[in-house]
């Protein structure tokens, strides 16, 4: 049984102009201990997937269909109170702006102690020992517990937030662009630390980012999203070396690198679609170089082109081609 299993997850935002199909029929499974990268451009629904499965949605959002199985429990059927327990002990999340979520008037250590004591019956001394342990784990000097957030640098704050997310030893941690606002050297340290901690604790991680280079370094498997749809899922090397979906191919070759030959970058014509009125058929067809008549008419389903390599495309490229 997979640790997390999303089946046909569909979520809409109700707006004045009509429903926005932010997450559409996303099915995805994660094994225990696995690191999955979710990659896509802004507005493709990658953050919405995380928010939907944690049920942290704004009032105007509505889960229209699908199931979220976590350790054999359907999260969508839980009460708000049970869900809160899951969000803490089962799945925890680190947001992009998380480093700004520390309260400036309390010591960082105290904030984490308080968070722990909210959910576990630990004495002050035990909780502080736990925080010191966590600080150590994310590479912060435990002495920094006595400092205030403004005395932390951006990278240190982000580590403290990760420590907080790890406090109740969750089975799954969802990291949504945790290093996007940071400089590369700090980013490198945090990515390395995340990888170490994850293997050490045998924790699963869903890492959400628009940066395929970062995704390449932290994940074992990658899901590519476009316009609310999951278009390709495979292990990391396959996605990079033998991508089958035309969008994935474009995405991979649109990124400049400092290694290897300098090559021209792929350009996609047009812009991502407006999710108020997504194009009929395959949502990528207006920008796709391989689009044919069937693409404009029918939505492709996720099919296996290889074991462990799924693509939602009528004309998968490369090895997967008929």
């Amino acid at each position: 049984m997979p640790l997390l299993d999303l089946q046909g997850l569909t979520m809409q935002y109700r707006t004045k102009m009509g429903p926005v199909h932010a997450v559409d029929d996303v099915s995805l499974a994660m094994e225990a201990g696995e690191a999955l990268g979710l990659v896509g451009e802004s507005g493709c629904g990658k953050t919405s997937v995380a928010m939907t499965l944690l049920r942290l949605l704004p009032d105007n959002a509505e889960i229209v269909g699908g199931q979220v199985w976590f350790q054999g429990v359907d999260l969508l059927s839980l009460s708000e109170q049970e869900m809160r327990r899951v969000r803490w002990g089962g799945i925890s999340m680190v947001f992009q702006a998380a480093m700004n979520s520390l309260n400036p008037v309390y010591r960082v250590g105290d904030q984490i102690v308080e968070a722990i004591q909210e959910h576990q019956h630990l004495s002050d001394r035990q909780a502080r020992a736990r925080v010191a342990e966590l600080f150590h784990l994310v590479g912060l000097d435990p002495k920094l517990m006595e400092r205030y957030p403004h005395e932390y640098s951006g990278g240190m704050k982000q580590r403290a937030v990760i420590a907080m997310a790890l406090a109740c030893s969750p089975k799954l941690i969802i990291a949504d662009e945790p290093t996007t606002a940071l400089d590369v050297i700090v980013q490198d340290r945090i990515l390395r630390r995340i990888n170490e901690v994850r293997t050490q604790l045998n924790m699963s991680m869903m890492y959400i980012s628009h940066d395929i280079a970062v995704i390449a370094e932290v994940s074992q498997r990658i899901g590519v999203m476009y316009a609310g749809k999951l278009v390709e899922v495979a292990d990391t090397v396959t996605v990079f070396k033998r991508p089958a979906h035309p969008y994935t191919i474009a995405l991979m070759s649109a990124f400049p690198s400092i290694q290897g030959e300098k090559r021209p970058l792929a350009q996609l014509p047009g812009e991502p679609p407006n999710l108020l009125a997504p194009p009929p058929g395959c949502r990528f067809h207006p920008r796709c170089p391989h689009a044919s008549e069937v693409c404009t008419r029918e939505e492709p389903r996720m099919e296996k082109v290889d074991p462990g390599h799924g693509v939602a495309c009528w004309h998968p490229q490369g090895r997967g081609r008929d």
Binding site: V184, I185, Q187, D188, R189, L191, R192, D211, I212, A213, V214, A216, E217, T236, V237, F240, K241, M252, F255, S257, I258, Q259, G260
Partner: peptide, 15 residues
Amino acid sequence: SAVPVPDPTVRRDPP
């Protein structure tokens, strides 16, 4: 050496 590389087969040394 801190720049991530969009290639999972490349291993970077820590900066």
